[in-house]
Nucleic acid binder design. Sequence first.
DNA 1: CTGAAAGCGCTTACAG
DNA 2: CTGAAAGCGCTTACAG
Lengths: 338, 338
Amino acid sequence: MSIRDVATAAGVSYQTVSRVINNHPSVKPSTRDRVLAAIDELGFRRNSTALALASGRSRAVTVLTSNTTHYGYASILQGIEETARAAAYSVGVGVLESTDEADEAAIAAQVQRAADSGGGLIVIAYDPAGVRALGAVPAELPVVGVVETPASPPGDDRPWVWADDREAAYEATRHLLSLGHETVHYVAIPSSTRRTSARTTGWQQALREAGAPEPLPLQGSWGPAGGHTAGLQLAQDTDVTAILCGNDDLALGVIRALHEAGRPVPGEVSVAGFDDAPHSAYLTPSLTTVRLDFTGLGRSAFALLHGALEESAQIAPHPVSVPELVVRESSGPPPARG
Amino acid sequence: MSIRDVATAAGVSYQTVSRVINNHPSVKPSTRDRVLAAIDELGFRRNSTALALASGRSRAVTVLTSNTTHYGYASILQGIEETARAAAYSVGVGVLESTDEADEAAIAAQVQRAADSGGGLIVIAYDPAGVRALGAVPAELPVVGVVETPASPPGDDRPWVWADDREAAYEATRHLLSLGHETVHYVAIPSSTRRTSARTTGWQQALREAGAPEPLPLQGSWGPAGGHTAGLQLAQDTDVTAILCGNDDLALGVIRALHEAGRPVPGEVSVAGFDDAPHSAYLTPSLTTVRLDFTGLGRSAFALLHGALEESAQIAPHPVSVPELVVRESSGPPPARG
DNA sequence: CTGAAAGCGCTTACAG
DNA sequence: CTGAAAGCGCTTACAG
C-alpha cells in the first residue's frame, strides 16, 4: 500500500498523489477529488519513515529526562506530548539514569541516540544528569532545555524555558518569615546545592532582605527518603522552626521525621514544599507549597522547539509561567518562646 | 556523511561498509579494519531512518498510556525504556487522554499514530481508555498489553503481562480480616468497577471465604480527590472499620477524609492501599499497601514484544511478578466494641 | 570475499 | 496543472 497504488487507483501519476497529500495548490479540483477518494477507499496512510528520509524532516521530538516517576518530570512530559500530538509530532523518551555519579558516557550515548532518531530534542535539566545532557548536545541539533531560573537572563539564542522558581522560593520564604519565624532552613534537591541554584538563591535573598540568619542548605535527594534524613537532623535543633523543601516529596519526608522526633507540624515546626503534587493537598497536615505549572512548561518547550524546527510555526517569546504560593496547614506561627 | 563517504575513505564499495556495520561474517579482516578505522575517523553513525525504510524493521516501540503522572504508569514506562535501550530500541509515548467518556476517535487515532511510527506497541491497559486502545489494535501490529490479572488464563497467543493483583487484593483483605475486622470495604480505581476486575474479585473472594458481609465497592477515581470523596461517605457509617483502596493515592484521600471526620487511622479505621508508591512509607500514619513490581512489568512487556519482533530474541514465558503485602501503621485491630 | 543493481516509499526540482 | 527523473541512505538478493 503505497503512493503508487493510490495513483493507479485514481488514474494519475504518483507525483500527483504526493501533491494532494501535501496540499500543494496546483492540483485540479476534480483530480484532487479522485485522488482523495482513492486514498479513502484504499485506507492509504503515508509512510512516515519514507517521508522523513526523503524530506529530511522527521516531525519527531525526543525528551531526555531523569526518573519520570517524579511528578514534575512526568507532568512536563505530559505537556510536551499533548502539544506535540496536536502538531502531528511523535514523541520519544530517553531516561537519564541518575546514578550517584552520573555516568558521562551513558549521558553522551543518550544524547547520541536522540540525535540519531532525528527531529528535535527537549532536555529536562533540573538535575545534574539533565544539565550535563543539555551541555553535551551538539550545536547543530535543535534543542530546548527546561531549566531552573537562570542566574542571568540568557540571550535569545538560548532556547530555554523555566518557571520562575527563584521568585517562588523567595515568596515561600517570605511567607514563613511573615509568620514570625526567625529564619528558614532549606532542604535542597540535588541540583540546588550549587550556589547558582535558583531556588537556593531565592531563599537566601529573602533571608538576607529580612536580616535573618542564613543557615547552610541541607543536601536532600529527590525522594522522601532524603527529606527524612534531613528532617531527622534538623529535628535535633530546637531552634529550627521553619523548613522550606526543594520539592513536595522532600517535605513529606521532613514532616515524617519531625513526627518521629516528636516535633509536631505546624505546632513546633512549619514546613513548605515545592511543586504542589496532587496528593499534597490531602496530606495531614496538608502541605503549604508552591504550585508550578509543569504541564505549561512542557507545552512552552515544545512550542519553542516547533518554532525552531519549522519556519511556518510561530516562535514563542521566552515563556515564563508564574508559580503560585498555596498556603495550607503545614505552615503557621512559631511556638511561643519558652 | 553517509555509508558512501566511509567507503571512499576506506577505498572499498559502500556495500562492503554495509557488511561491516551489520557484522556480516564474510569480510576480510584487513578490509574490516580499514572500514572500521574510516568509520571511527569520520565519526560515522548509521542513519536509522534509512535503515528502517530499507530493512522494514524499525527497532522502535510505542507505549500507549493514560496519565503518566501516576506512579505505576510512570514506573512501567521506566522499565520499558530501560530494557528497550539495552536492546537498542527507541521508545515513543502516546498519551490516552482519560476524559470522563473516553473518546473512541481519539483513542483510535493514537493507535493509528503508533502503528504509523512502525515497530511494536505496548498498551498499559489498567483503565478503560487503555483497554479500549488495546482492543483497537489491528491484528497485524505486534502488541503487548500490560493488564490486570485476567479473569481466565489467556491462551499463549495473548501477549499479556500482569502482576497478580487478584491474589494481592485477596491477601490484603485477609490481612485486614485477620486483625479482627468484621468486613472490609473497597474503594475502586476506575476499571475495577467492572465485575471482572481482578482486584475487586480478589477482595470479594476473601470476604466470601471468611463468611464476611460483602458491601458494594465504591467508585473512586485515580487520584486522592476520588478517595477523599469516597472516604467522607464511608466515614458516616461507624460500622466501617477497614477500607482497602485500589491504589495509594486513593488511600491517601480516604485517610484525609477520615481525619476530617474525626475518625483516627488506624485507631478507629484501618486503611490499606495498592502500589507502594515511594511516599507511602513516609506518610503519617505510614501506609499498609501492596507493593507491585511495575518496573519489572515494564521489562517483561518489552521482552515479550522483543521476542515477537525478532526471532533471535528469546520469547519469555508469561511473566507474572509477585506482589508483596507491606504492613505499616495504617492497619490495626478494630476499636473495642461499645 | 567483494562489487554492481534494484528497491524501500516518499520528496524535490525539472520539464512540459 | 501534471508527468518523468533523480535521490534521501540504507539493505537485499544477484553476480563474480
